[in-house]
Design a protein around this nucleic acid. Sequence first.
DNA 1: TTAAAATACTTACCTAAGTAAGTATATTGG
DNA 2: CCAATATACTTACTTAGGTAAGTATTTTAA
Lengths: 144, 144
Amino acid sequence: MENLLFHEIHQKSRLAIKEVNEVLKEYELYSAQWSILFCLKQFGPMTQKEIWQYLNVEAPTVTRTLSKLEESGWAERNEGADKRQRIVCLTAKAESRVAEIEERVTMLEDGMLSGLSQNEKQQLMGLLKKIQSAARTEKDVKND
Amino acid sequence: MENLLFHEIHQKSRLAIKEVNEVLKEYELYSAQWSILFCLKQFGPMTQKEIWQYLNVEAPTVTRTLSKLEESGWAERNEGADKRQRIVCLTAKAESRVAEIEERVTMLEDGMLSGLSQNEKQQLMGLLKKIQSAARTEKDVKND
DNA sequence: TTAAAATACTTACCTAAGTAAGTATATTGG
DNA sequence: CCAATATACTTACTTAGGTAAGTATTTTAA
């Protein structure tokens, strides 16, 4: 049973990425790239660390994805006061397109979730949040 | 909101893989390899097509993962009556270890889900299954 | 004050999975 | 019968993400 639950989560994760990529194809973007653009749109210029902490991935993942976004002219990396940091922001090209892409992606995601009521979506979110690292014992949870 | 739901699914998917890999490290295995071994343990010898259909991945994914399982002596590919097919089965080495690994992985997954009641796990499964391809319209669903 | 430790990012290498195109074998229709 | 089509698998290339180790800059502590 547990088994099947994680299998199902894995499947839906892949399905969502596949479908989002289908929409993003028109903009010559991929899902991981979009997640960074979306992040920058929400929060404005950020350091790479802020991005990978928010997205909950490792630093090298963001380095790689940003290199592509920079090459394709969606994002810029500028030197910060702390010379170790690189401050990332959207380019003019990105600024002008992000809203449209967001709308398209949101439409798609709504479609994928059209079988669930608003209440069910909230329930699903709540249940997913209860999944935790097995390293955390019951005691850890109480200490949150 | 939809947004965050898929983000959460993606995270939990990565988290589960990461933790399973931690356990599998002892056996010099990775999660995708384990999913095939588990499949073979459940169903016995299968063609590659049966494997990728069951796991819901593409054919090349299984080809690649099996090559590694073969190299490391966990699985074998034999010629079938239909010479296009390759019939996959566990080696003796695998037969002797799969039960132990399954127990370890199940323990881990139980731990990750220890925050959920039996009922909540079922609910979660039910809700996940309601997520569908956006290509499917409401009409499609009725026609199931 | 400066040597050691910490931080931010990068590079190199690995698994995982998708698409497109290729090969070999089987099936089907004229 | 055999040419066209379909099927099963493979190969090559791409994105996505993880770990380990490296570099440059900043902070800390003796």
